[in-house]
């Protein structure tokens, strides 16, 4: 069995207590579901002194008020997948949550954990023995990226399913730090650094996610591409949020995930505003998305095929709105 190195476990009763613990301890990690952190510790990727469990925080909730859905970070993915509020007012987020991993992991994992999910790579998420044999990489211990065969940068991939949807929805995140709360747009969270892809202040805890409730005429979807129908991380994730007025595009946001350290917001889509969703328009949008997406080889499926699939999934997603 893969055993973990010794560490202590704390079970605070409030978010502030958790944050204070984090700041007063060297080399501590938050743990919610643990379904990503524990396997990574077993692979020798982390050697924490303390795991700060988040299961003891007050019962998390989803509330809708003034057109904003507030989701406590500790909400389990399984509960979000079937949440009435989400299904009515942010269905693609419920869809994304329902597609994460498999049933057990969705019962354990939280939204905050999924948003904060570490980047992944075929060369990084392996055992200590394996990485030593191949040669350590930029993200951990080494100075070479095996994916791009270069010491220049780490291209480990953002691998969360909820992130592309939250990005397309222009969600906000509320963090609790040592000095109080901080609210940022999720679109400001990421940086193109596989080894450290979140622009965070040290020790911050994601306590709440806020998404706009979809107005009438709003359409959204999340399309996940993965080898199997369960368990797998995305090889590609495409989130689309749009609204149509008189069958014409009023607003359009597309985010492509699982291709690089950051999720990719497709730019320049406003040229389609006012246009109807015809086959021709859909094809053009898909091509633009494909052109702007450059999947890295840090994830299964190859780079060429996944890039083709960007266009395919955008087309299928847009077509589903008709």
């Amino acid at each position: 069995m893969l055993r973990m190195p010794e560490f202590k476990y704390a079970h605070p009763k409030s978010a502030q207590e958790a944050v204070d613990l984090m700041f007063s301890t060297e080399n501590a990690h938050y743990v919610a579901g643990g379904t990503d952190l524990l396997p990574n510790i077993k692979n020798g990727l982390h050697e924490p002194s303390l795991l700060i469990g988040l299961g003891g925080l007050p019962k998390p909730e989803v509330t809708l008020s003034d057109g904003v859905i507030s989701i406590d970070g500790g909400m389990k993915l399984a509960k979000l997948a079937t949440s009435r509020t989400l299904l009515e007012s942010a269905p693609s987020l419920a869809e994304a949550c329902s597609l994460v991993a498999g049933p057990q992991i969705r019962n354990m994992g939280t939204l905050a954990g999924n948003v904060m999910l570490d980047t992944r790579c075929l060369y990084y998420n392996q055992s200590a023995f394996w990485r030593k044999s191949l040669g350590y990489c930029l993200k951990k211990t080494g100075d070479w990226c095996h994916v791009i065969s270069s010491p220049k940068s780490c291209v480990a991939s953002q691998s969360s399913d909820s992130v592309p949807v939250l990005m397309a929805m222009d969600a906000s995140l509320v963090f609790l730090g040592r000095d109080g709360e901080r609210r940022i747009k999720i679109r400001e969270l990421f940086q193109f650094k596989g080894e450290n892809h979140l622009k965070l202040e040290r020790g911050e805890l994601l306590v709440s996610v806020e998404v706009p409730a979809s107005p009438d005429g709003a359409l959204s979807c999340y399309r996940k591409v993965r080898p199997r129908g369960s368990i797998d991380f995305p090889q590609l994730g495409v989130a689309i949020v749009t609204s149509l007025v008189d069958d014409k595009i009023e607003h359009l946001a597309i985010c492509v995930g699982a291709i690089s350290p950051t999720p990719k917001m497709i730019k320049g889509l406003d040229v389609f505003y006012g246009k109807p969703l015809t086959d021709e328009v859909i094809e053009k949008i898909a091509l633009i998305a494909k052109k702007q997406s450059r999947p890295q080889g840090s994830v299964e499926g190859g780079t060429k095929w996944r890039r083709e699939m960007v266009a395919v999934e955008v087309e299928l997603g847009l077509a589903s709105f008709r």
Binding site: Y9, L38, G53, G55, P103, Q104, N107
Partner: peptide
């Protein structure tokens, strides 16, 4: 956490016991 053979029910929900700390 890749195979499910360690599944137990916690408060009625299937979870992976190999990815859950005992103390939690």
């Amino acid at each position: 956490g890749d195979c499910g053979a360690c599944t137990v029910l916690v408060d009625g929900d299937p979870v992976l016991s190999c990815c859950s700390l005992a103390a939690a």
